[in-house]
Design a protein around this nucleic acid. Structure first.
Length: 488
RNA sequence: GGCUCGUUGGUCAAGCGGUCAAGACAUCGGCCUCUCACGCCGAAAACAGGGGUUCGAUUCCCCUACGAGUCACCA
C-alpha cells in the first residue's frame, strides 16, 4: 500500500484559530496512525491578504504544541517548494492543458458584469457561462488585445457526482449545483481550489483532511482529478467547532466567542498540552472514552472511526478543568517554573519561598493568569474590616480573636526557625492548651495575616511565606485593630 | 432560496435492534478541613416530533421541525 501522506495547508493570516489547529492535529494524527508523513504547505495565493510574519505564527504554533511536520517550507522535502506563491508558474500549464482538451475555457467577463449578476432578485444563480462557448477566433482576438482573463473549468450541466467521505459516508451532489469554477485568476495566481488539487496530487497527498465546510465543494475537486486522470484521495471531513453566543444560540467559533486563537489561549494561561488534549476531544472520542492524552498517546490511540459527524461547542469550562489537571499533574518544580513569570510580576525583586508558595497554589490554580491576583496579598495587606474575624463554624468573634492572637504572637516570636513545620508545631500546641478547636485559633491568625477570608493555603503556609518579621507585624496590626475597635 | 450535512442531559460524548441509556465538564448536596481549592462519596439531568420496518427501536427507512455549512477572481 502507498504511504499515507496528509498535509496541513493553512493560509498565512497571522492568526491560528483553534479550528485550524484541530485540523492540523487530526491531519498529523492520521498520518502518524498510519505511519505516514505529515506535510506543511503554505497557501498564499491570495496576494491581497498577505500578512507580515504570518508564516512564523504557523511554525511557532506547531512547534509549541509538538506537532512536527516531515516536510515543509522550513524543513524541506522532495516535493517542494512548499509555498504556493513560489510555485506560481507551475499552475498555468495545467490549466492550459485543460483548455486544450476542451475541459476549461478562457473567460473575459469583467468583474462588474459578474457583480451585477449577483444583485438580481433570484438569490444566486451563479456565473451564466457567458464565455463557455466563445469561438476560437474571439478568444484569440481577446488574448491578442490583452484583455484580462480567467480560466474556468467546464462543469457537466447534467447528472450528478458522488463521492465517499470517511466520516460522512456517501454524498451526492447534482452537477447543476456546480459553477464553472475559476482555476486561474486574472492576476495569474491559481485559486485555492485549483492550487489545492494540483499540489495535493503533485505532493502525493493520500488523505485530504479538512473542515466540513468543503464537503459540498468536493465534487468540484473530484471533477478536476478526473479531468487529469489522477487518483482520488481519501476524504476525511471534520465536524465544525462552534461557539456559544450570549443569547444561547451557537455559531461557527469566532473571535466574538472569546479567545479562539491559540496564542490568545496561551496568553490567558492555558497550557499548549492542555489545549491540544482538549481540542482533540472536540469531534473525536476514543473507544474507552479516556480523556487525558499526551500528543504521542493521541497518535497511538487515534482512529478515524472515532470522528463524529455533528458539530461541537467549544467549552471553556472543560478546557479550564483539563488545564487544572495538567497543572496538578506536574512536579512542584515544574509548576514553579511555569508560575515564575507570574511570581516575578508581583515580586520583581524579592524572593519568597517559592516552593511553599507553589505547593499551596498548585492544587488551586486552573489557569496561569490567575496567579498574580491570588498572591498579591502577600505583597500588600489589603484593607479589611474586623468583621472578617467573626466566623461561626470556627467559633470566632472579635473578642476571642484577641485572645487567640495574643497567645499566638509570643509563641511565634520565640521561634528560632521559621518553617512550615516549626510554625505548625508551635501553633497547634495552642488550641489544646486554650481548650478551643484548631479553627478558633487558626482563623483569626489567617485573617490577620492575609486580610481576606478566602485565601490560597492556610494560616501556617501564609505565615511561612510572609516571613517572620512581616508575619508578626501583620498579626500585631490585626490585634491592634481588634483592640481599638473593642474599646469603642 | 437551492443544495449538503447534522440532531442522546446545559456542554463534550458512549451506544452501532433487546442496556435500569455509560463516562467527563458544569450544577447541587455530603465528607475531609484553619478559609478556598484539591480529593472522596452522592444527586439531579437526555434519545427533537410524527409515521413506518420489526416480536422489539436511541439504533434502520420516510416526513416535519430545528440547527449548521455552502452557493466568490477567500481560503
Amino acid at each position: 500500500m502507498k504511504d499515507v501522506r496528509t498535509r496541513f495547508a493553512p493560509s498565512p493570516t497571522g492568526f491560528m484559530h483553534v479550528g485550524n489547529l484541530r485540523t492540523a492535529l487530526y491531519e498529523y494524527l492520521i498520518a502518524k496512525s498510519f505511519n505516514g508523513k505529515f506535510v506543511l504547505r503554505i497557501e498564499d495565493t491570495d496576494q491581497e491578504r498577505l500578512v507580515e510574519g504570518a508564516v512564523q505564527v504557523i511554525y511557532d504554533t506547531l512547534k509549541q504544541v509538538g506537532i512536527f511536520h516531515d516536510e515543509g517550507p522550513d524543513v524541506g522535502g522532495d516535493f517542494g517548494p512548499y509555498i504556493q506563491s513560489k510555485r506560481k508558474n507551475l499552475y498555468l500549464p495545467y490549466a492550459q492543458e485543460l483548455v486544450k482538451s476542451g475541459k476549461a475555457y478562457y473567460c473575459f467577463c469583467s468583474k462588474e458584469r459578474l457583480d451585477s449578476m449577483h444583485k438580481g432578485e433570484h438569490v444566486f444563480e451563479g456565473y451564466d457561462r457567458h464565455c463557455r462557448d466563445l469561438s476560437q477566433e474571439e478568444v484569440d482576438k481577446q488574448l491578442a488585445a490583452g484583455t484580462p482573463y480567467v480560466i474556468r473549468q467546464k462543469m457537466p450541466m447534467t447528472g450528478f457526482t458522488t463521492f465517499t467521505d470517511v466520516v460522512y459516508g456517501e454524498i451526492t451532489i447534482e452537477n447543476t449545483e456546480l459553477e464553472d469554477q475559476i482555476l486561474i485568476k486574472s492576476d495569474g495566481y491559481p485559486t485555492y481550489n485549483f492550487a489545492n488539487v494540483v499540489d495535493d496530487h503533485l505532493m502525493g497527498i493520500t488523505h485530504v483532511v479538512r473542515g466540513c465546510e468543503y464537503l459540498t465543494s468536493t465534487p468540484k475537486y473530484n471533477l478536476l482529478y478526473e479531468a487529469y486522470g489522477w487518483k482520488l484521495p481519501t476524504y476525511v471531513h471534520l465536524p465544525m467547532i462552534m461557539g456559544k453566543n450570549e443569547d444561547g444560540s451557537v455559531s461557527k467559533l469566532s473571535k466574538r466567542h472569546g479567545s479562539t486563537g491559540f496564542v490568545d489561549l496561551v496568553n490567558e494561561g492555558y497550557l499548549p498540552e492542555a489545549i491540544v488534549n482538549y481540542i482533540a476531544l472536540l469531534g473525536w472520542c476514543p473507544k474507552d472514552n479516556r480523556e487525558i492524552f499526551t500528543l504521542s498517546e493521541l497518535a497511538e490511540y487515534f482512529s478515524v472511526d472515532g470522528i463524529s459527524k455533528s458539530p461541537a461547542v467549544f467549552d471553556y469550562d472543560k478546557l479550564t478543568w483539563m488545564n487544572g489537571e495538567y497543572l496538578r499533574a506536574m512536579t512542584l518544580d515544574g509548576f514553579t517554573q511555569l508560575a515564575m513569570p507570574s511570581y516575578k510580576k508581583v515580586f520583581p525583586d524579592q524572593d519568597l519561598d517559592w516552593g511553599v508558595l507553589s505547593s499551596i497554589l498548585q492544587p488551586r490554580v486552573t489557569k496561569l493568569n490567575q496567579i498574580a491576583d491570588m498572591i498579591h496579598f502577600f505583597k500588600e495587606l489589603p484593607e479589611y474590616s474586623t468583621e472578617l474575624f467573626i466566623n461561626k463554624k470556627s467559633k470566632t468573634n472579635t473578642t476571642n480573636s484577641v485572645t487567640m492572637l495574643e497567645a499566638a504572637i509570643p509563641v511565634l516570636e520565640s521561634l528560632d526557625y521559621w518553617t512550615t513545620e516549626s510554625i505548625h508545631d508551635a501553633l497547634l500546641a495552642l488550641p489544646e492548651k486554650l481548650e478551643v478547636k484548631n479553627g478558633t485559633l487558626l482563623w483569626p491568625v489567617r485573617i490577620a495575616a492575609a486580610g481576606m477570608t478566602v485565601t490560597p493555603g492556610g494560616a501556617i503556609e501564609i505565615l511561612t511565606i510572609l516571613g517572620k518579621a512581616e508575619a508578626i507585624k501583620r498579626l500585631n496590626m490585626g490585634l491592634k485593630k481588634l483592640k481599638d475597635e473593642n474599646k469603642e
